[in-house]
Simulated scan of single mutants.
Amino acid sequence: MNIAFFLLPKREVVYMTPEATMRQALERMEFHRFSAIPLIDDSGHYIGTLTEGDLLWKLKNTPDLSFENTDKIRLKDIPLRWQNQTVSINAKMEDLITLAVAQNFVPVVDDNEVFIGIVRRREIIEYCSEQIFSSKLIREA
């Protein structure tokens, strides 16, 4: 099965740009209750995944940084510890299963490597569950 069926399109994905501030990211992640979000550059390319851990390490390792002045820090200045592996829109669902073990979402790109959305781990697990359940029913019949 092609992953386009499971794709959450870019317009529905919560993401940030490298020019956004640390405060904007903190507030957006808190509002949506996400622990990680994609970073997309001005050309539309996926450049990494910003995590709560990245923000906490930046706060810990930057003298005199507090929540009040996080609006002075650009996301491009925060080291990212995690780079979710991308897949092509032409990938098959089976290609995503191994990625879902370590990633809570898989960024999807088009033929020009432009970010077009994500497939969430939840949809991958639901797909696997349906495959297991349906094959179990066939064997029992």
Rank of each mutant, 00 (worst) to 15 (best):
P107Y: 03
F133I: 15
D95R: 07
V14A: 14
D71I: 03
V101K: 14
E126R: 06
I124N: 03
A20W: 01
A20H: 07
I47A: 06
P18E: 11
R23K: 15
K76Y: 06
L80C: 06
L55R: 02
F133L: 15
D54F: 05
D111N: 12
T49N: 02
F105Y: 14
G53P: 00
R121K: 15
Y127Q: 10
G44M: 01
D111W: 04
V14R: 11
L59C: 06
L26V: 03
P38C: 05
A102R: 04
N84Q: 04
L59Y: 03
L59K: 02
V101R: 15
S43P: 01
G44W: 03
R28T: 15
E12R: 14
D77S: 08
L99C: 13
T70C: 08
R81V: 09
R81P: 00
V101N: 13
L137R: 15
D64H: 06
E130F: 01
E27M: 13
C128H: 00
E126Y: 08
R120I: 13
I132F: 12
I97F: 08
A141M: 12
N61D: 14
P63I: 11
K136A: 15
I118F: 04
K10I: 05
L80A: 11
N112P: 00
E27W: 08
E130I: 04
N2H: 10
Q131S: 06
A100P: 13
D111I: 04
D111K: 11
I47F: 04
E30T: 12
F67I: 12
R28C: 13
E27P: 00
E126H: 11
I138D: 03
L50W: 06
I78W: 08
F34Y: 12
I89L: 12
V119C: 09
M22I: 00
K92M: 04
R33K: 12
R28P: 07
F31D: 14
W82T: 12
L26E: 02
N90K: 14
L75A: 10
N112I: 05
R121P: 08
F6L: 07
F34M: 02
A91I: 04
I47E: 05
S35D: 11
K76M: 07
I3M: 02
A100T: 13
E140W: 01
N2K: 08
E130T: 07
E113L: 10
M29R: 08
T49Y: 00
T49V: 02
L7A: 11
Q83C: 02
A25V: 03
L8E: 12
A100Q: 10
T51K: 02
R122M: 06
Q24C: 07
N2E: 14
R120V: 14
S43M: 11
E68S: 03
V108H: 07
